[in-house]
Amino acid sequence: MHSKEQLLLKSPLELLEKYPYLEAFFTNQAVNMMADESMTLKQIMIQMDESGAEDTAFDATHFLDQLHDFIGQMQEFSGVNSQVVEVLTILPGTDKSGQPEGFVELNFKKSTITSIVGPTGSGKSRLLADIEWVAQADTPTSRTILVNNTKPSTDWRYASGKKLVAQLSQNMNFVMDLTVREFLELHAGSRMIANASIIVDKIIDAANDLAGEKFKADTPITSLSGGQSRALMIADTAMLSSSPVVLIDEIENAGIDRKKALEILTGEEKIVLMATHDPILALMADQRIVIKNGGIHKVLQTSEAEKSMLIKLEEADRRIQQLRTKLRSGESIVDDFFP
């Protein structure tokens, strides 16, 4: 890593060769850094000073500080992957009335699913916020969050490229004016992924596998159906998001294979948290937490009895889906549902 003084003696082009990710940083400057490729940063700065940096809102010292920080962060960022989040732990705090929570230690391991149940407004957002902020007994619940059994680095709080939780909910939509492929390439680019096209193809395949109706890579993302959008968001989050934890707020029971969706996420080693009111989804999880009055009231492991119940529920669900198909194609519904 270069010191600030060393950086000054290089030209932007030289720096770009050494640190390719600087392209994003340079193009985001108010000044065209590539105007004269032979000039060093120092020369460019002197020139800016003379020609009135006022016009372009360019502050040389500030620029140098930020360049230095950016390189440092990016170097760390590309090495961050080495630290996989194996397990996230919550140590109990209190509910809204100050009563201690109903567990001793709660673990979320990678590749497992935890469902979150409880009435709306009971404290799900606070729980999520505690995790995102890696609470250290310093939020209203006084919970403590550990990462890999140790007190986590404050980077999880403050560094912008390093967030613990990715979120998927039903009101989220794509807003960019891009095709599926362009969109995924942009996302891969922001994470500085080398072989973008491989992962992009993988995501499109996985999303098509989840969605009822297939879509093509050149479809604009804004014209995908509800099910297709959700499928793409899930596959993209599983494979391209940098966050180890994925919070899903209910997966609608239409246009998407929910079981496979969860498999993709756990297959990519995500820690999956799922807020739901749907018994099938709740039982697909390995454990479930019950939230009440702002606190975690109970932690339940999905029992063997519940797992066999799940099989029956899935069968019932499959039959209701069949009834839907019959309805749609104009058939009449006869009473062979309850044998």
Binding site: A24, F70, N171, S190, T237, S241
Partner: peptide, 17 residues
């Protein structure tokens, strides 16, 4: 709350740059 996770990540990366 209204855009996708990917868009949030891309936007945050632009802010960071």
């Amino acid at each position: 709350d209204i855009v996708s996770q990917a868009e949030r990540e891309v936007f945050a990366a632009r802010v960071h740059a």
